[in-house]
């Protein structure tokens, strides 16, 4: 019998709680009511994607995009380290917007049962997944050209954690609203189709040190992995999951849904009993 308690959810809760506390404290400090033992950084300071969008300006002029500073670049580096080791685990274990969508997804699952996350036809899903690369290129281009954090005006993460500040523009609220509604139908819609940072980190599925692997010798072809994958990846047809949309949540793994021990795992090298 599989464990109900998942360490991943605990980690998600930890980071979601931390970000919420820090962002609230950032507002409290400005009014003189801050909590001393909690950080009071701005959301821009603790967003590793800020580090990515400022890279061009940093290399060309030695300065940061407005509102971004060293901390974002260092956090970006730390996230890349974890991604090189284990793939885009940041998306599934740390990102608070991902956790928020996942939580909404649980409501969606209760409403739509088995139809949940199956509304988008497979062919369309495959095409739409490329959209986030367009978003990534667009964000990098307009930020480099303008030196302004243009994406902030469309970023649901910024809207979610700043909705009470009066700093969020309507377009970001609209994107957040769509993300919330779609999360009730589709698992992690923002991550799957639009997240520029997920697009970038997803590339590490190809070269991370630890890779998600399926042991075809012991696999009983039960499709449990395919059915549980939030990103609709067909795991059962693959031996190594290189799909750039994989977020390494390990829901498909033998530690979670896969009923056969050591059949879907995140590891270095192939399985011993493989040919």
């Amino acid at each position: 019998m599989k464990k109900k308690f998942k360490i991943r959810h605990l980690v998600q809760l930890l980071f979601f709680g931390l970000i919420t506390l820090v962002v609230i404290n950032h507002q409290l400090v400005e009014t003189g009511d801050g909590i001393s033992f909690v950080g009071d950084d701005s959301l821009h300071g603790i967003c590793p994607f800020g580090g990515v969008v400022t890279l061009y300006q940093l290399f060309t002029t030695g300065t940061f995009v407005q509102k971004i500073h060293e901390s974002a670049v260092i956090l970006m580096g730390l996230v890349f380290i974890t991604s090189i080791i284990a793939g885009p685990v940041f998306c599934s274990w740390v990102c608070p917007l991902g956790s928020f969508q996942e939580f909404l997804g649980k409501i969606g699952k209760k409403i739509f049962k088995k139809r949940y996350n199956q509304f988008v036809p497979k062919k369309l899903d495959k095409i739409m997944k490329y959209f986030r690369y367009f978003v990534l290129i667009w964000v990098l281009y307009v930020t480099a050209k303008s030196g302004y954090l243009v994406f902030k005006d469309y970023d649901p993460y910024y809207a979610l954690f700043n909705f009470w500040t009066g700093e969020v523009v309507i377009s970001a609220f609209v994107v957040l609203g769509f993300t919330i509604l779609l999360s009730l139908l589709v698992e992690r819609p923002w991550c799957k189709y639009a997240c520029p940072y997920g697009a970038l980190l997803g590339i590490t599925n190809r070269f991370s040190i630890f890779k998600l692997r399926r042991n075809k010798k012991t696999c009983i072809s039960c499709h449990a992995c395919d059915l549980t994958c939030p990103m609709n990846i067909e795991i059962m047809n693959k031996e190594v999951i290189h799909d750039s949309s994989c977020i390494r949540c390990l829901e498909c793994s033998s530690d979670n849904i896969c009923p056969v021990e050591d059949t879907v795992t995140i590891k270095i090298g192939g399985y011993k009993n493989e040919a």
Partner: peptide, 18 residues
């Protein structure tokens, strides 16, 4: 070599939170 979920959790906490 398999990466245990607990180790992965620890890695993320140490690297990112640390």
């Amino acid at each position: 070599m398999k990466l245990n979920q607990n180790i992965l959790a620890l890695l993320l906490i140490v690297v990112i939170l640390g």
